[in-house]
Amino acid sequence: MNQVMEIDRLNLHYGDFHALKEINLGIPEKTVTAFIGPSGCGKSTFLRTLNRMNDLVPGVQIGGSVKLDGQDIYGADTDVEVLRKRVGMVFQQPNPFPKSIFDNVAYGPRLHGIRDKSRLNDIVERSLRGASLWEEVKDLLGKSALSLSGGQQQRLCIARALAVEPEVLLMDEATSALDPISTLKIEELVRELKKEYTIVMVTHNMHQAARVSDRTVFFLNGELVEAEETEKLFSNPTDARTEDYITGRFG
C-alpha cells in the first residue's frame, strides 16, 4: 500500500531527555493507524512530530527524517504552514475558537485566502457533514461554538480541521475528554473519514485502537516496540512486551 508518511530513524530529545529513540514507521494511505502505550511512552510526542507542533516547545531537538509524500518535513525548504495545512490535527481537549460555529469552520479557509461567501458556505456545509455535525447545527451556525456539548465541540474541531482539506488527520487522544456516547460517535466518524483521509490517532484506550484502527503501533519508553495489523497485534503479538501490555500486565 502507498505510504503517505515515512519516518526514518527519528530521535527526539527534550534537553537531556531522550524521548523518542530511533523510530522507523510507515503510515499507509487512507487507513487508521493507532498509537498505543502507557503514559509517558512518547506516543503523543511522536504524533506531534508529524506536523511539527513540537517546534513550539523550547529545548526540543529532532534528528532523522519524517517524509510526507517523499519530502522531508524537517527539510530546509519546508513551509511549516503548508505542512500543517496538509497534516491537520485534533486535540485532546475540544478547543473551538470562542466564535460562532460558522466562523470556526470558515476560519482556516478564510485565512488561506477564500473570501467568496458562497464558496465558504459550501466548505462549511461539506466540512460539517464530513464531521457528522451538520444535521445537529445547521440552524445554529451563528451561535457560539462554546454553547455546544463537549462531543459536538470535538466534532466541530474535526470539521474545522477538514475545512482546510488536509491529507492526514492527527488525533491526539481526541475522545479522552468525552463521554462514552460522544466517543462512539467519533469512532464511527473515524471509520467514515478514512475513506478520504489518512488518520493517525493516539489513544490511551486499547479497546478503541482495536475497534477503529487498521494498524496499531505500540510504544514503550520512547521506543517503537511493534507496528502491526491491528488484528495481528492484538491476537498474536510478536514482542513479549506488547503481549504483557495488551493483556494488562502493566500500564
Binding site: N51, M53, L56, E81, V82, L83, R84, K85, G88, M89, F91, Q93, N95, P96, F97, Y107, G108, L111, H112, C157, R160, A161, V164
Partner: peptide, 22 residues
C-alpha cells in the same frame, strides 16, 4: 489557553496570523 494557540497553528496559520487572529 494554549489549546487556542495550538488550534490556530494546527490549521496552518502563520505566527503573525496566530497572534493577530487568535
Amino acid at each position: 489557553p494554549r489549546e487556542q494557540k495550538e488550534a490556530g497553528l494546527a490549521l496552518g496559520l502563520t505566527r503573525w496570523h496566530t497572534i493577530t487572529k487568535v
